[in-house]
Design a protein around this nucleic acid. Structure first.
Lengths: 338, 338
DNA sequence: TTGTAGGCGTTATCAA
DNA sequence: TTGATAACGCCTACAA
């Protein structure tokens, strides 16, 4: 038998309104009644019914995260670390976290967002893998649904977000590769419509220039951020007349695939060919050889995003801060570091 | 402005009751009205309000999964694969999946379950990492909350579950190790109160006996299912006067740590020392050397559990089937298999 | 300080 | 085949 405020009220011979007020900590109630209510509520193991509360308050105390379409899914370490961060932080703000995956279809992604918005399943969203022009931004803004994001799109809409100083990070990485003696540096990227891809590729080009190396379009491959894509691209790159001696990957997952391919090709990683990733997922420390990568604190980023969203939800006005994260270069054996 | 059945009713000049019935596909409504309702509902982008529906129906169409306390968390590949399976299957039954983590404290785990049950947040639960005597089983059974589980506890409560034929699996693995010439076989286990640990350890002992090897308590270490624990245990095992030439690990994660430690010790894995895991997570194929493991289809298991739970929720009576999964031995380089 | 009552959006019961 | 209407459990004017 489920406990409701009505039962507490009956037991105490007071009205349900009084119980409700006592429970919610309103001031217009005698200290004595409040005590009695609080106590019996605890005794009876009362927990407010979520559905009723949501219906009445017209909010859900939940936030949503939908795994973007076109991503390999949760198998990607990036997402699990992102999830850990959100999952840790949400309860601190008394928020539930709803997670779903959009699968491969952009249409299903749209349907999901629309459904969640219209059925009022969540109060706000956390976005990542922002596209250059991202319909999610426009849609949520139009519907006045609060949201925060990792990276900022070019839609001309302002929203709370976290920015990564990709250019600075890439500059450090490219310099490191140059110093290690690598000259023929390739880039294995991701889908072209991703902000991330554009920035990382442009960081790569700028880094080449800084080192006095020229850009060769032949050395740029596209993938889909998966290890499989990294594997395939690497095998193809080896066929070039002048194959690269270093592979800069758009993310760690792609780099994992590259490592795998080089293993299969029997090349000595870190000496004959260097490999570098981006993100600094935990697993990057445990590959063999360990992966050089540009580390960004994924769980902390996710935490901060949830915090920003929560503030937005409570205050009603978006936070003004746009934190800038500078990636940390972790020099490891995959680029011949010590 | 959110669309409700009332607005559809007004637009069509019929009662909200008629709209509701048309939408829910009741038979006592004229085909014509139903058509009109369905059409305008679609036009107006109507999606039923979840909270209202839940409140009225007294169910949530959601199922819950709480990451057991004492687990390393989502960073464990096992859980991400388990989650993928549940996440795939739940929508097929029109169920939402709510996920949370219990952190390290058993108390917080209890609080979470109680809170979710009392606030009627979910209609049922999926459990895994069952303990020998698991309070969750008793609690949920008492409160008549449907649940399903991977593995069966010894609480004397019947519930739908999936069983793993650990003994058969372990027998195959031990035989394989023996055939590869390994004789000093150690076991790195997990928390002693886990059903899994007890079964896998007992499978190990039985396997030893089958091979005519004697059991040596010195060769059994406990961990917490994490890579870190596997790493530590392996380093300690090397200090033994007669160090093991094979490490059977309670799960892949532990084995990953063991591999890492042996790398650091400069030992040739697969020849000098063999390592084997359990679970067959995807990453086990990509370690170097690739990890020999007892593979169980984690995502499919999770899917099946969701399906069983859904059936239970709909029918009201627990399914009677208790599928038995026999692990598949994947012989790979970490045990010298080519 | 307390109680009464209306309503959040749906579904289900009972008449019409 | 339809329409009123009463809940579901909670919150909050407003009245007492």
């Amino acid at each position: 038998m489920k406990i409701t405020i009505r039962q507490i009220a009956e037991k105490l011979n007071i009205s349900i309104a009084a119980v409700s007020r006592a429970l919610d900590g309103y001031p217009d109630i005698s200290i004595e009644t409040r005590q009695r209510v609080l106590e019996t509520a605890r005794e009876m193991g009362y927990v407010p019914n979520r559905a009723a509360r949501q219906l009445r308050r017209q909010k859900t105390d939940s936030i949503g995260f939908i795994l973007p379409s076109g991503s390999p899914g949760f198998s990607e370490a990036f997402f699990t670390e992102f999830l850990i961060g959100m999952g840790d932080e949400a309860p601190r703000h008394h928020l539930d976290l709803l997670v779903s995956t959009a699968g491969s279809s952009p249409e299903r992604e749209k349907d999901l967002y629309r459904d969640w918005v219209r059925s009022q399943k969540v109060d706000g969203f956390v976005l990542n893998r922002i596209r250059l022009n991202d319909w999610r931004v426009g849609y949520l803004a139009e519907n006045k649904i609060p949201f925060v994001a990792l990276e900022h799109s070019l839609d001309g809409v302002e929203y709370p977000h976290i920015e990564v100083d990709t250019i600075a990070g890439m500059a450090a990485l490219m310099k490191h590769l140059f110093q290690q003696g690598f000259r023929q540096i390739a880039f294995i990227g991701g889908p072209e419509d991703l902000k991330m891809q554009v920035e990382r590729l442009s960081g790569y080009r700028q880094g080449l220039a800084d080192c006095g190396l020229s850009f060769d379009p032949e050395l740029v491959f596209d993938g889909d951020l998966s290890a499989e894509a990294g594997y395939q691209a690497t095998r193809r790159l080896r066929w070039l007349p002048n194959p690269p001696d270093a592979l800069v990957c758009v993310n760690d997952e792609t780099a994992f695939g590259a490592l795998h391919a080089l293993h299969d090709l029997g090349l000595e990683i870190g000496r004959e060919v260097a490999v570098a990733g981006f993100d600094g997922v935990a697993a990057s420390a445990h590959t063999s050889p360990a992966l050089t990568t540009l580390d960004i604190p994924i769980p902390e980023i996710a935490q901060t995003l949830v915090r920003m969203l929560s503030a937005n939800l409570v205050a009603g006005i978006p936070a003004e801060k746009h934190p800038l994260i500078t990636p940390r270069l972790l020099m490891r054996a995959s680029t011949g570091a010590r």
